[in-house]
Design a protein around this nucleic acid. Sequence first.
DNA 1: TATGAATGAGAGTTCATTCAT
DNA 2: GATGAATGAACTCTCATTCAT
Lengths: 198, 198, 198, 198
Amino acid sequence: MPKLLETTRVAREARILRAAVACFARQGYYGTTMEEIAAEAGIAKGAAYVYFPSKEAIFLALYDTWGCTLREEILAALATLTPAERNSARWVLRTIVEVTGRHVQKEAATCRVLMEGRSLAAYVPAIAERVATEQAQAQAQLTTLIQGGVAAGEWPADFDAALHATMVRATIHGLMATWHMAPGSFSWEAAAAALARR
Amino acid sequence: MPKLLETTRVAREARILRAAVACFARQGYYGTTMEEIAAEAGIAKGAAYVYFPSKEAIFLALYDTWGCTLREEILAALATLTPAERNSARWVLRTIVEVTGRHVQKEAATCRVLMEGRSLAAYVPAIAERVATEQAQAQAQLTTLIQGGVAAGEWPADFDAALHATMVRATIHGLMATWHMAPGSFSWEAAAAALARR
Amino acid sequence: MPKLLETTRVAREARILRAAVACFARQGYYGTTMEEIAAEAGIAKGAAYVYFPSKEAIFLALYDTWGCTLREEILAALATLTPAERNSARWVLRTIVEVTGRHVQKEAATCRVLMEGRSLAAYVPAIAERVATEQAQAQAQLTTLIQGGVAAGEWPADFDAALHATMVRATIHGLMATWHMAPGSFSWEAAAAALARR
Amino acid sequence: MPKLLETTRVAREARILRAAVACFARQGYYGTTMEEIAAEAGIAKGAAYVYFPSKEAIFLALYDTWGCTLREEILAALATLTPAERNSARWVLRTIVEVTGRHVQKEAATCRVLMEGRSLAAYVPAIAERVATEQAQAQAQLTTLIQGGVAAGEWPADFDAALHATMVRATIHGLMATWHMAPGSFSWEAAAAALARR
DNA sequence: TATGAATGAGAGTTCATTCAT
DNA sequence: GATGAATGAACTCTCATTCAT
C-alpha cells in the first residue's frame, strides 16, 4: 500500500493537484477520471476525496493556484526592471507579455488547463465565477497601467485605456490559445514587442 | 408520428444541426445528450443517427458550417467596399473584424460552439484537424493581405506580416472569448478600428 | 439480448415492480441494488431507469400499488357480506382484519416491503408523505366506521371512536410485524374476532 | 488531542452508544456513518473500532441496552403498586403500557432506533436474533401474566392467553410506531386503560 | 426512414474498515 | 489506546449507441 510521502496536508494536496494538471492537460477535464488522477498521484481513488470533495473542486483549486503562480512571476520580473523601465507603462506591458510567454512555455500543462477553464466557464458556474473575478482584476490592473502611460504621454491623451486593456488581454489570451495549438509558431518576444508598440 | 417536414437529406441534417447548436451553446458539448438534440429537433433519438454517425460527427459538421457562414459574410461585406477601400489592407482588416463582431452578436449561439470547439480541439483529434485547417487558412489569407499592405506602403517595409497576422487572429479570438464571457463589455467597431490602426 | 415480453408500458413497469418486490422483500431496500432488480426482471441495469427515475421511485410506486390492492380486496370482501353484516361495524371491522390477514399470507413479499416502508418513512421524506396520507385515510375511515357502530349501539355511547381506530390500526400493524417475524405464530381469524369483540 | 474522559471501558462504550442513538434516531441506520457517530461522541473514527468491531455491533449493543432500560422501568413501576394492584393482571398490563408510553416519550430517540431494529431484523440475521429472543421473552411473560389473570377470574376461563399476549404486544408495537410517526396523536394513558379493559 | 426500448461500460462518489504512526 | 489517512469495493445513475419493429 503506497502511502503519500508528504507529511503536511498542503503538500498532499499539491501532489494531487500536480497529478490532476497532468491528466487534465493530457485528456481534458471530461476525459479525465478521478481514478486516473488518483493513479497519477499514486494513491487510491478514495484518497483523493479526502483532500477534495469533487473533481470540480480539484479543477477550481488548480485554477486558483495558477493565477497566483503567474502573478508572482510577473511581479518578480517587474522587480528586476530598472526604475526607468518600471515607470514606462509600455515597458511593463511588454514585460508582462514576455513573462506570460515564458510561463506558457515552462508550464505548458498548467496553461492548457487554464485555457480549458476559460471554456468550461461558459457551462460551469463555479468556474465562471473564478474566471470572471480573475479577468476583472486583470482588466482593472491593465487599465490602470495604461492610464498611467497615457498620463505620462506614452499614448495620446484621447487613448481609450479600457479598450486597449481589453484588447491586450484578448491578444494574450489568443496567443496562448495559438501557442497551445501550435507551440513555437511565433515568437513571444516579438509579440510582446509588437503589443507594447501599439 | 410527426415526421421531418424537410424532404431533402441536406435539409434534415440542417434541422438537426440547428438543434445541436442550440443545445451545445446552452449546455456545452459534454453537457448535451443526443436525446436533447433530437428533442430540440423534434425527432426521436435514433433518427439523429440516420444522419450523423455520432455526437462528435454532429459537432464536426457544425464546425464546418460555421466557417462557411462567417467567410460568406466577410466576402459579402468586402463586396460592398469601394475599390479604393478594397485596395487598402488596413480597411479590409477593419472590415473583417467588424463583420466578425457583428456575426458574433447575431450568431451568439453558433459562436459559443465555435469557441468550445477550439478548446475541444486540444483533446479530440478530429476537431483538432478541422481547427488546424481553418486556422492555417485564415493565417495564410491574413498574411497575404498584410503582405499586400506592406507592399502598398501601409506598413513599414520591415513589418513582420506573419507575426501580425498571428496577432490579429489572436486578438479576434480573444475578443470573441471576452464577448462571450461579458457581452457588450466593449465596442467591436472601436476594436476593429484600433486593430487596423496598428 | 432479452427484451421485455410485455408490450405496454404499464405491463413493463409492472414486471420491474414485481422484480423489485422480490428483491426488497428478500434483502431489504438498502440491501438491494438496482442491478439486482434489473436482473430479477430479466433486463439490463439501464432499462430499469427507462421506467423509473430512481430506486426510491420504484419503492414509492410499489407503495402506491400495494395500498390499492389491499383496499380492493377489502371492498370485494365487504361486497360479499349480507346487508345485516354490512350494517354491523363490528362485523366489518372483523372482515377488514381477516382480509388483511389473508392478504398478508398471500402477498407476504409485498407486505414485507410495506412494513419496511413504514420504517423507512422515518428517514425518507417522500416515503413519509405516502405513509402519512395512507394512515390518515385509514384512520378517518376506521373512525367513521366505529362512530357508526357507536351510533348503532354496538359500543357504549361514550366510546372513544378515534382512540379505538388508532388502536385497531396499531394492532393490525403490530400483527403484521409479528407475522413477518414469525409467520403462523397466531391465527388471523382469532385475532380478527378478538379485535371485533372489544 | 482530547481523549475520552471516561476511565472505564464500559463508560467509554456508553458514550459511543449514546452518540450512536442520537445519530441513528436522526438519520437511520443506513443514513448514519461511523464517522458521524465518532464525531458525535467526540472521538476519531478509528477509536470507535477499539470498542466495537463494526457498525452492526454498535446497533446490536444499543438494542441490548434498550431492552434492559425499559424492563427496569417496568419493574420499578410495578414495585410501586399496592399488593392488590400487583395481583391484578389487568392492572399490571395497564401499568406496563403506561410505563412504555412514558418511556417512549422520554426516550424518543432510543425508541426510534428500537423501531428501526424491528425492521432491520428482517434482513440482518444478527438483529433478528436479538429481536426474536426479546419478543419470545415478552410473549412468555405476558402469557404467564394473562394466564394468571384468567386463573384469578379476570378473564373468562376459555380466554386464549397466548393470543391475547400476542395482540397486546402487537398493539404496543403499533402504538409505538404510530407515536413515532405522529407524536401526541393519542393518549398513552387512555390506550393503556383501553387495552387493559379488553 | 423513424422510433424508442434496451444495452452496458463507465463515471463520480461514499463509506465501513484497516493500519501505520 | 487513539488517530485519521488510505483503501477499494460497491453503489446509483448516465448516456452514446444499437437494433427490432
